[in-house]
Design a protein around this nucleic acid. Structure first.
Lengths: 224, 224
DNA sequence: CGTAGTTTTGAGTGCGTTCAAGAGATGTGG
DNA sequence: CCACATCTCTTGAACGCACTCAAAACTACG
């Protein structure tokens, strides 16, 4: 399933240095810290940078005039977000936890002249992004509420889970509304489905945003 | 709404020459003709080329083990299709009408060393692709059957419609199942919705794949 | 003319929605 | 530290949109 954009999840504190290395020369790396709920860019803003997430989690959304919302992706460390089209961003981006990003100049995405290595890395990120989005299509268009929810938890587990005895534990910063808008469901359905997973002992909840996966295989099966 | 990948729709017979121009040197342009229903590549195939559609219409699909299918995009002339990830295609691609494509070497997508102009054009195509897919997310996740269907017809009209008196006429090669799998609906629902649009005089059908749009504004309104 | 595939239409069902309210968590000011 | 307001999450009841199943109408093709 599709959670975020771009490159593989970095397990430790390496992403900043990776980004640094790619900038090659002595150019200063522009990092930016964000508080929870702080905005990074809005739909329609002129694009100067694409961002590499180095810590925290960001949320990319689109909104219809009548308020219906779709969460396009969650940006986890290692992901590249903010791909432009016709010079503007096409989603809104907000931090949903405290977060830190590295700003890459947009011209390094568009051309390899200045920094071939970084350019290559950004182009690869676009291809990974497309591939991930294609998977997400299948989920939005063809999966049931329980399959969607199981897929979601399953991917979060793979990306952020840590062993806890025989089980796997992880936390996530997004609330039920974010999850619902990501999966094309309502908060109530997400809540009911999670309750159902809990009652059938596939997962246990420490609190509403902290999960222990009790039956990994069953969860993956349900994810379809 | 999201119909196809990549660059803007070419109105006439220019795309091949555009592609040729971009290949710069004397290198021979690899074109490939496809008959209706013929396969171009499958999910998992090694990627050698990305393809630029020069005529006809192609269909990109993903399929789950249990047979559920999602149409990711339709490729119209001017579109670039077949973006790789980790060296393989992540969708199946079939022609749904007779079609012709130009094959661009994959290395021109990955690097600008050999042909900077073409590389730039392909990178731009990935960005347009991402932007289009983001719009499609909103449709799959948050729109009703009639909004989806109206959006679909609306976009096809914009891309391929020709004036017919005061109205706009267009044809499309995809069947109801393709449309349903593109919109995340069933054939029956697509059929019923189109009938509903016909009965409320927003459109008229010459035959099942030939439409006259009678009330453009109302159709766009419905598309939300 | 017969067979296979596509599209439409009908009837009934069910999944996820809406609407409503309660439970739980979080934060603020007195 | 507690009372109160606010936000999030959960649970319940009822509805409705899109689905499933079934069959008829239409099209295409040998």
């Amino acid at each position: 399933m599709y959670i975020s954009n771009a490159t593989d999840f970095e397990t430790s504190k390496t992403p900043v240095s990776t980004a640094l290395a790619c900038c090659g020369s002595s150019k200063k790396v522009q990092t930016r810290k964000l508080k929870a709920a702080q905005n990074l860019f809005r739909e329609g803003d002129d694009v100067r940078h694409v961002y590499e997430v180095t810590s925290g989690v960001l949320r990319l959304t689109k909104v219809l005039e009548d308020g219906r919302r779709q969460v396009i992706a969650f940006g986890y460390p290692g992901d590249i977000i903010g791909f432009p089209h016709n010079g503007v961003y096409h989603t809104e981006c907000d931090a949903i936890s405290g977060a830190e990003v590295v700003a890459h100049d947009i011209c390094d995405l568009e051309s390899g002249e200045r920094n071939p290595e970084l350019h290559q890395r950004l182009v690869m990120a676009t291809l990974k992004e497309i591939s991930g989005m294609q998977d997400h299509f299948m989920m939005l268009g063809r999966k049931s509420a329980s399959e969607k929810t199981a897929s979601f938890l399953s991917v979060l587990m793979e990306r952020t889970g840590k062993p806890l005895g025989a089980y796997t534990h992880f936390e996530f910063p997004m609330n039920r509304a974010d999850i619902a808008d990501f999966l094309g469901l309502t908060v109530e359905t997400v809540s009911r489905t999670i309750t159902m997973l809990r009652k059938s002992k596939l997962i246990a909840l420490e609190n509403s945003r902290s999960v222990v996966v009790l039956d990994e295989a069953a969860l993956c099966d349900l994810a379809a």
